[in-house]
């Protein structure tokens, strides 16, 4: 086997390490492979997993801040209620006093209204009594006139002595029915 044949056998068998044009082209092919693979792995494996993890971190961060806000609000509410519970006795007394005051005012108002109504009723009754008195007086006046007229008619019909006159007056009075003479 001469040198050329040996070189040909070595060439088809491959090599461990050499720096020739063939290695350069193989390096080019492997470079292309490396770039394609790293880009694919970075874009379609690393990026989606990283994105999922980032979104989860963000979500947990938001939940934590929300929980902190809720805790702060709960603590503030608890403090408010503690203060309210502490002040509830004073508030109760205040409410009772306010209610009693309102009740007193209402009572006074009702009393005033009742007195005013009673006064109205009394005034109206006085007026009615006065009217009724006037009416009775008118009636008596009418009856007196009628009685006088009847008495004058009888005087005119007979000549009278003193005793007859008295008797006539008594009869007339008794006929009139015991009227109480009022002014």
């Amino acid at each position: 086997m001469n040198v050329d044949e040996t070189v040909a056998v070595v060439e088809t068998q491959g090599k461990i390490l050499s720096f020739d044009r063939e290695t350069l082209y193989e390096t080019g092919v492997q470079w292309l492979n490396t770039i394609i693979l790293t880009v694919l792995l970075a874009k379609f494996l690393y990026k989606p997993v990283k994105k999922f993890m980032d979104e989860r971190s963000e979500r947990i961060k938001n939940q934590l801040s929300g929980a902190k806000e809720a805790e702060k609000s709960a603590i503030s509410m608890r403090d408010d209620y503690t203060i309210k519970l502490r002040d509830i006795e004073a508030e109760r007394v205040e409410i009772l006093e306010a209610a009693a005051k309102r009740a007193r005012e209402k009572t006074e108002q009702l009393m005033t209204e009742a007195q005013s109504d009673a006064e109205h009723i009394r005034q109206r009754a006085y007026k009615e009594i006065a009217l009724e008195t006037e009416k009775v007086k008118d009636d008596i006046r009418h009856e007196l006139i009628e009685l006088s007229t009847a008495l004058a008619g009888r005087f005119a019909a007979v000549s009278l002595d003193r005793s007859t006159q008295d008797k006539l007056i008594d009869d007339t009075i008794s006929e009139a029915g015991g009227v109480t003479w009022l002014r």
Binding site: E22, Q30, N33, L40, L41, F44
Partner: peptide, 24 residues
């Protein structure tokens, strides 16, 4: 100059195929 598919290149393609399938 002939560019050969060597054992290394074949191995790389097998690994690439496996990793791409895994990514999918």
């Amino acid at each position: 100059q002939t560019v050969w598919m060597t054992q290394s290149i074949l191995g790389t393609w097998i690994i690439m195929a496996a990793l791409i399938l895994f990514t999918v």
